[in-house]
Design a protein around this nucleic acid. Structure first.
Lengths: 355, 355
DNA sequence: CTGAAAGCGCTAACAA
DNA sequence: TTGTTAGCGCTTTCAG
């Protein structure tokens, strides 16, 4: 604490000053270049000097200033994250992950909502990157599937990482999750509880995730030797309302499902409502499963069995990929990454009701 | 576009370069100092020169680099926003507002989740500010009501803005909303629809907002000449689950309320569920109102009548307050600000049921 | 009204 | 293994 709050000179503590590389050099009695070497973990520093310098760094609590670094080196140590996703919780998780990874690597994360009013998304992105002097950019969905944006990014010749791309997984550095495998795992979870009539609510038409999750559902049925029954699927739109409607539809079927797997949490919430309305107790009479582990999933009543997407970790991986690339570890930086999902079993799913 | 993507030299477009103050000076045939004067709107520049320089700036699409600025001036043009609120949507809205205001004023927003593992919140904040070289800090709830944090911030001698403080509204620069007035307005809205038995679900015990909203509810009743009935209030905890429980309780009353005002949206969602379970149609049989306008409020079914807090605007006002203060407009920067709420009438409230 | 020169904290050659 | 020197893009004196 003392070093942080050290008075500058004279009696009054005027303003808190961070220590500079020169302060450290003086204290350790070496040149600033040597300090720089230690900080940046460059080779060619004797162990003795290293230790001495490190001690000085610790004592003064020295951290290099990003601004000063960026004026000299060609690098800005700035990483961009564009926001153009209507889901604030999702965006926020991305932000947390990216910011953590950036900070750990001496980078600063610059968060930019995409200005749709001005020009095309592609032009806006170019502006953001060039004006902001960003070394690289993290591009979440749906932007990461916009062909114009992709071609603009490629032209810019700066590394960019795409989160959960739905198409062209060879463009840029891609971080994704196994949506299909996750949906299969959830289906298997329901099958393991004895369910054979499992309803499935699809997401918005035409999105890549909608397709992947539907495939996973089919995989899960097939693996258990259960025939796919189109009657048990319903076209939703990722909204609570569509969940209510699909839930009412599925529950009004003659041979109604004993479990409903909604391909996101909002629709699962809708199913919960629909179930309550017709007097069904969850999970006693009906099992309900979601997908996403949105903030409300655990707050729902009953708490929702769902799939957790490692959103923050995906953003962190994206940031790290870009940073690695900048450091010259190309092989490390450019291989696409797929992270594991997590099946979170809460109280909304249970054994199939006894007849 | 041409200026943004201009090739550097030779045939191949190597890397996109932003233009510097020197580029502008050369083009306008003045010294860099003059350019600086124009950019920073300093006096003592002839109109002719100003126009010429501005033309060069526009042509080259020149924007000063924050990093370079901060190395020279004492200012870093960095504004901090700590995150320590469990609600991602709320935090995200704050972020949007603060980032917008920062950008408009040539500042950059630095977003920092509070590291609770390391030390006390107060120490962490000090670290963030000093190490990050932040000119000021935006402090949202609940952090803005932590006495240690407040005293640490005061000692640091840097401007800080508190969002929706619950106590000590004289410490720092405070931006708030009229919680009490908003709750009163919502109560009046229900009264205007003929409701006289209006249930009220309180938030978590001991929080300032909980108190303020309860007061507003009472004000609303009193204004309409309706006696406050303790039986119609219920202690919630801002969670969906507590909403379900309070909803069930209130609806099981002998003379049950015809409207329920929950002091946040999550609890209102719980009330909706409870209502569905006992077969009550909303708003035909029961009106339900919330508070916050969370992202889910409009997605609920039926869409929820609620109070919109101008969260983003509050953060923007906070950022602007700090920036104004840094610019020396003390009177402007230090007056506390109270923003207007907005009553959003959707479909969950309606006239009192005919008996 | 305008500009030259010094310097911010740091990195990148290049010496020693 | 270490240090010296020259910048980076900008602001800030201080002279014209």
């Amino acid at each position: 604490m003392a070093s942080v709050l050290q008075p500058q000179r004279g009696l009054r503590m005027r303003t808190v000053r961070r220590s500079t590389i020169t302060d450290v050099a003086k204290l350790a009695e070496v040149s600033i270049k040597t300090v720089s070497r230690v900080v940046r973990r460059e080779p060619n520093v004797s162990e003795r000097t290293r230790v001495a310098v490190q001690a000085a760094i610790d004592e003064l609590n020295y951290r290099p200033t990003i601004s000063a670094r960026s004026t000299t080196s060609a690098r800005s140590f700035l990483l961009g994250l564009v926001f153009d996703n209507p889901n604030p919780s999702y965006s926020f998780e991305l932000l947390r992950g990216a910011q953590r990874a950036a900070k750990e690597n001496g980078y600063q994360l610059v968060f930019e909502p995409l200005d749709r009013s001005r020009a095309t998304p592609a032009e806006s992105m170019t502006q953001l990157i060039v004006q902001g002097n960003l070394e690289g950019m993290i591009v979440p969905p749906p932007l990461c599937d916009d062909p114009d944006v992709l071609s603009a990014m490629s032209k810019l010749n700066r590394p960019f990482a795409r989160i959960a791309p739905g198409r062209e997984p060879s463009l840029g550095f891609c971080v994704s999750m196994d949506d299909r495998g996750a949906a299969e795992a959830m289906t298997r979870h329901l099958v393991d509880h004895g369910h054979t009539r499992i309803g499935f609510i699809m997401g918005r038409e035409g999105t890549a995730t909608t397709q992947a999750r539907l495939h996973g559902y089919k995989d899960g049925l097939q693996g258990a030797g259960i025939a796919f029954d189109e009657e048990l699927t319903c076209q939703g739109a990722f909204t609570i309302r569509s969940g209510v409607e699909c839930g009412e539809h599925l529950l009004s079927l003659d041979d109604r499902p004993t479990a409903i797997f909604a391909s996101n949490d909002d629709m699962a919430a809708g199913v919960l409502m629909a179930a309550h309305r017709v007097g069904l107790e969850v999970p006693r009479d009906l099992s309900v499963a979601g997908f996403d582990d949105a903030e409300t999933a655990s707050a729902m009543w009953p708490p929702l069995t769902t799939i957790r997407q490692p959103v923050a970790d995906m953003a962190a991986a994206a940031a790290e990929g870009i940073i690695d690339h900048q450091r010259g570890n190309r092989e490390n930086g450019l291989d696409n990454v797929q992270l594991d999902y997590e099946l979170i079993v809460r109280e909304s799913t249970g054994p199939v009701p006894e007849v």
